[in-house]
Design a binder for these strands. Structure first.
Length: 833
RNA sequence: GCGAAAGUGGCGGAAUUGGCAGACGCACCAGACUUAGGAUCUGGCGGGGAAACCCAUGAGGGUUCGAGUCCCUCCUUUCGCACCA
């Protein structure tokens, strides 16, 4: 009875035991100091928002990272594997509204709960470096960085059209607007509001951020492409058209200045500054322009600006083409965007799809000014948008190629002062103001006398007031706290008002991974020397949803820090990995779909090891993973088999510890061969493609093979030394995937030090080599049989063996063998006629 | 519309370089054991066929001695971009 019970794999007994031991031994997962002399490995997973519950996506993310970290520990690296909390943000305020818990209390309680979940899962994090972004010892450095950026002109205030989410009751950055909706409220349309806001000048780094992508060869191409699209670099020319009969100029941006002789109108965005002047005394025009604005708004709200039906109105004014003085009408059109380029274009219907459509609709002139460079018999139909052509109908520029003409026309524009070559980016400055309470206070003061005054460094941090009532009233909650708002001006000592906006939480996550390396530093955000040792991050792992949010802000922030002299690198992350989503029944897990699987439930039923290992086994890490509970049960059964196998033979293994084995033969050789093949396979996957699903499968095969000869093992036909090597290596191979079971079995094998400190097994290529190969034999490409030959057998030998086969002779009888293809070690194919 | 990834048994997936398609696991079927367990062990498990064999990796063509893998056309799904001048 008791014996029976002891044989049973019981994670609910093993796991808490080791969890306690690990909690009591913080050194196990702690990084050694920067000066320790060991090669470092920094493995980072994106820090979670402390919502209160880990979900399966987290389990998968952190199981991948933890497996890698454990592997690298066993490879002898000094591993930094930290964890923290992205702890500012709106949900804490919403929770405060709902159940009257202060955001800080709610957040810290959630953190405590999730930390317990992490520990229960057996994640090997270095909690000594824990970072909690909502605590003053962290966010004071957000403020410090803000001031440094303000000094450099990289943080500035301006009034502009900004994205407003009515549900968040705050402004959003462009990156946080998805299909015209809020990234957190996917069905809430974002409104455009004119507000004075703080911005970070990320656009100053647009070119650098773009160029840097080429060097990030450890990043998924998908993420790099998304960032390239987002940055949206476009080379072109700006040209001034004078407005006839006034001193006004309209500056247009075009990528095809070579087509400028085909410009038959100038089109303004409805919000263009000149439009206001044109409509000032023309209420009919004003109404028409308002209609265009309304159409744009509707299209934007529908999330499909591309589908807007083109409309426009003539202003009755005319502009003059600076190259030939041609008089062209000025229109206002709804397909011109105010916030791209100059908000005005020259319309060239002959060589632009959109202009062609518009001109056709309103009867504007369409003129050919580019002819295809190859003098084909018939001219292609307009619009002809290729740049492979020569200029026609373009005065003195006729005959020039498009590229040559562009250069020439730019030179002329510069010489006459009406334009120049220019580069436009889609990337706009990062709006960081938030009209919310639970965020980093922006360390600025508004003084009636001195204007904007930065909070002096020695007055940091600007603390968030803790006694605050969260209400649904509009406006910044901090504005309703007089003790916070009313200050004396640091410059003149007179009464002044504190800035009441807080920072976007993406500020917190833009540099948190630097803080991990020196989390307790009270004098600076970090010690540059320490960062120098640990950076760049060797491997970053997280969801693809941050491809153009967090991951672009982080790259920007690192460059700002570089220019502040704090770091010497341009890029914080050497290798980036985006894991797939966890789905169930074909859909992303969500409360509304009712298909959420709780990690706690899984751990309670099957244990942390089985839950984690399933999340690695069910699919390659970069693909979506379909959660099937039966699969978890299957992994749990496998761990049970490992448990029974190792506990059964642990006494034999212990008896042979440290003994040298004799040259293996028979079953021993077969088992060791399989073992060393498995070691090679698993090791290779850690180094390369990370297909942990096939690693686990390979370990399962090994266990199957060992179990198949259980009778011989039980009969002691396999030397104890071989049993010892098998059992030890099996446990080591499992250690990154099933840390609890590995720790327990390692102990049962008589080991006293942690399995995490044991060296990763190495594969002996001699042992791994097969002594005989099965070579498939095909006749005309169809499999007929296999022949067994030595691995290094010469082609002639293999061919002879193949031809000697009964089944082969049956297939070739009465026919001629036209050709024999022998691929040594692979196959034989006989071509017969 | 443009770009990328993917499409393989009842299911998740494997096949890393053009070389035995379906490893491993789930589900299912049969059996063993039994103090009946969400236990364990053994065997089977793409389709057709009594068998020899034949057919099969979204569809159709092609290259090749040989194609899940390479090329072309098309279909479906997912993701990203989409009046960006």
């Amino acid at each position: 009875m008791t014996e029976e019970k002891d044989l049973r794999y019981d994670p609910s007994a093993i796991e808490p035991k080791w969890q306690q031991r690990w909690a009591a031994n913080a050194a196990l997962y702690a990084a050694e100091p920067a000066g320790c002399g060991k090669p470092k490995y920094y493995v980072l997973e994106m820090l979670p928002y402390p919502s209160g519950q880990l979900h399966m996506g987290h389990v998968r993310n952190y199981s991948i990272g933890d497996a890698l970290a454990r592997h690298m520990w066993m490879r002898g690296y000094n591993v930094l594997h930290p964890m923290g909390w992205d702890a500012f943000g709106l949900p804490a305020e919403n929770a405060a509204l709902k159940n009257h818990t202060p955001p800080r209390e709610w957040t810290l309680a959630n953190i405590a709960g999730m930390k317990r979940q992490f520990e229960r899962l057996g994640m090997g994090f270095d909690w000594a470096t824990e970072v909690t972004t909502c605590l003053p010892d962290y966010y004071r450095w957000n403020q410090w960085f803000f001031l440094r950026m303000y000094e450099k002109g990289l943080a500035y205030r301006k009034k502009s059209k900004v994205n407003w989410c009515p549900d968040c009751a705050t402004v959003l950055a462009n990156e946080q607007v998805v299909n015209g909706c809020c990234w957190r409220h996917e069905t809430t349309l974002v409104e455009q509001r004119d507000l004075v806001q703080w911005f970070f000048r990320i656009s100053a780094y647009a070119q650098e951020l773009l160029d840097g992508l080429d060097k990030l060869d450890g990043w998924p191409e998908k993420v790099r492409t998304m960032q390239r699209n987002w940055i949206g670099r476009s080379e072109g020319t700006e040209v001034d058209f004078n407005v006839e009969g006034s001193g006004d100029k309209i500056r247009v941006f075009t990528t095809r200045v070579d087509t400028i002789f085909g410009a038959t109108s100038v089109q303004l965005a409805p919000q263009h500054s000149l439009v206001a002047a044109f409509t000032a005394h023309d209420s009919t025009l004003k109404a028409q322009v308002d209609e265009l604005i309304e159409q744009q708004k509707k299209a934007r709200e529908a999330g499909d600006l591309g589908a807007i039906e083109k409309h426009g109105v003539p202003t009755g004014k005319f502009a003059l083409n600076p190259y030939n003085g041609e008089r062209v009408p000025i229109w206002v059109a709804n397909y011109i965007l105010a916030d791209y380029g100059t908000g005005a274009i020259m319309s060239v219907p002959g060589h632009d799809e959109r202009d062609f459509e518009f001109a056709g609709k309103y009867g504007l002139a369409i003129r050919r000014v580019i002819a295809p460079s190859e003098a084909s018999a018939e001219e292609p139909t307009l619009p002809f948008t290729s740049e492979d052509g020569v200029l026609v109908n373009s005065g003195e520029y006729n005959g020039l190629s498009c590229t040559a003409a562009e250069k020439k026309l730019q030179e002329v524009a510069v010489r006459h002062g009406f334009g120049q070559a220019t580069v436009t980016f889609r990337l706009k400055d990062w709006g960081v103001s938030r009209q919310r309470y639970w965020g980093t206070p922006i360390p600025m003061i508004h003084c009636q006398r001195d204007g904007l005054v930065p909070v002096p460094d020695d007055q940091l941090p600007v603390l968030l007031p803790e006694q605050i009532e969260i209400t649904q009233q509009g406006g910044s909650p901090l504005g309703r706290v007089p003790e916070f708002v009313n200050v004396t001006c640091p410059k003149c000592g007179g009464p002044a008002l504190r800035e009441t906006d807080t920072m976007d939480t993406f500020v917190d996550s833009s540099w948190y991974f630097y803080r991990y390396t020196d989390a307790k530093n009270a004098m600076a955000p970090f010690d540059p020397e320490v960062v120098k040792y640990w950076f760049p991050i060797d491997q970053y792992i997280g969801g693809v949803e941050h491809a153009i949010l967090h991951l672009i802000y982080s790259r920007f922030w690192t460059r700002v820090m570089r220019d502040l002299g704090l770091v010497e690198i341009d890029e914080p992350v050497r290798r980036q990995f985006s894991q797939g989503m966890v789905i169930k029944d074909g859909a992303k897990m969500s409360k509304s779909k009712g298909n959420v699987v709780s990690p706690d439930d899984m751990v309670a039923r099957y244990g942390a090891d089985a839950t984690r290992m399933y999340s690695l086994f069910a699919a390659p890490p970069d693909r979506d993973l379909d959660w099937q509970e039966d699969g978890v049960a299957g992994v749990s059964r496998f761990l049970g088999r490992v448990w029974r196998l190792v506990t059964k033979y642990a006494p034999v293994a212990r008896s042979a510890r440290g003994q040298q084995a004799e040259a293996p033969t028979g079953v021993s050789l077969k088992l060791l061969r399989k073992l060393h093949q498995t070691i090679a396979k698993v090791t290779l996957d850690f180094e390369g493609r990370w297909h942990f699903n096939t690693c686990v499968a390979a370990i399962m095969e090994l266990v199957n093979d060992v179990q198949a000869v259980d009778a011989q093992l039980a009969a002691r036909e396999v030397p104890a030394q071989v049993v010892c090597e098998l059992m030890r290596s099996l446990v080591l191979l499992l250690a990154p995937f099933a840390p609890y079971l590995a720790a327990e079995l390692w102990e049962q094998l008589g080991e006293e030090s942690a399995v995490l400190r044991a060296p990763w097994p190495t594969s002996d290529p001699e042992l791994a080599k097969e002594d005989e190969l099965e070579i498939p034999v095909q006749v005309n490409g169809k499999l007929v049989t296999v022949v067994r030959v030595a691995p290094n057998a010469a082609s002639e030998v293999i061919e002879a063996a193949a031809l000697a086969e009964e089944r082969v002779r049956a297939r070739t009888a009465g026919k001629t063998v036209a050709k024999v293809i022998v691929v040594p070690g692979k196959l034989v194919n006989l071509v017969v006629k």
